[in-house]
Amino acid sequence: MTNLLKTDFKRIFKDKLFMIVCIIGGAFALVTPLLYKVLFSAIDAEELLGAVTSAKSIFFEAFLPGSNFGLIVPVLLSIIICKDFSFGTIRNKIIIGKSRVSIFLSMFISSATVLCATVLAHALLTLFISLIFFDYQAGQFTAGDFGYLMLSILFEMLVYIFIAALISFLSVFMKNVGLAIVMYIAINFIFTIIGSIVMVASLIAEEKNIILEFLHNINIFTSSLIGTGSSYEFKDIMYIVLTPIIGTSLFVFLGITVFKKKDIK
């Protein structure tokens, strides 16, 4: 397993696409806060800027799986993962007696680590650049805010671990980079759209609707409970933690089951 992990990390880092991910991440981190600044300057409403946005909100937007970077990284990572199938190099691992379970787990762990690391690096860079132009938030930054920030980052990581499990599953299920990407983008869009519909429906509904609230809270792709307040309720934490853990476990289990039975050409 350790050997497989070493190899998977090595091939991800050696791939040109990884370099492209880093460049895109850096560019988005720089451009996003600048765009806000330029946009509000252009409409001559800089005094509104502080009320509308903050470094904190830009930071958490950078984490959204439906955001530019949040969508690009899993797609590029899928391409890297699927290269093992398109080049046929997955055969080298099976032929020399590596178990399919460890091959899948190595694929999942390495993609989860790289995905979390790149998304976190991008979000932190976005935060640092945003702090040049904006305050972190309207009020003062307290120790409680720091704890909330750290906890939120941990929760965001759970979301991306879930996404890594999903792309690992799609990669072994499809064995084809194009199909895996199309499936991932489709799933991402569908859940983001569902999230928006649920949110609008909740706003329209005159009374609190438990089903809509539940659908809103379990939608991992909108991560609507993370980073939107200043503290977490126990009920929110349960949703935030359990949903990605259950999702990750499900896709890891499905991925292993599918991969164990899959014929490799």
Binding site: R11, K83, F87, G88, T89, I90, R91, N92, I95, I96, G97, K98, S99
Partner: peptide, 18 residues
């Protein structure tokens, strides 16, 4: 069988290389 496979080398159809 996984241990036995460690003693095997193979090229199936085309060489599997990056």
């Amino acid at each position: 069988i996984l241990k036995a496979r460690r003693k095997v080398g193979a090229i199936v159809e085309t060489p599997s290389i990056y």
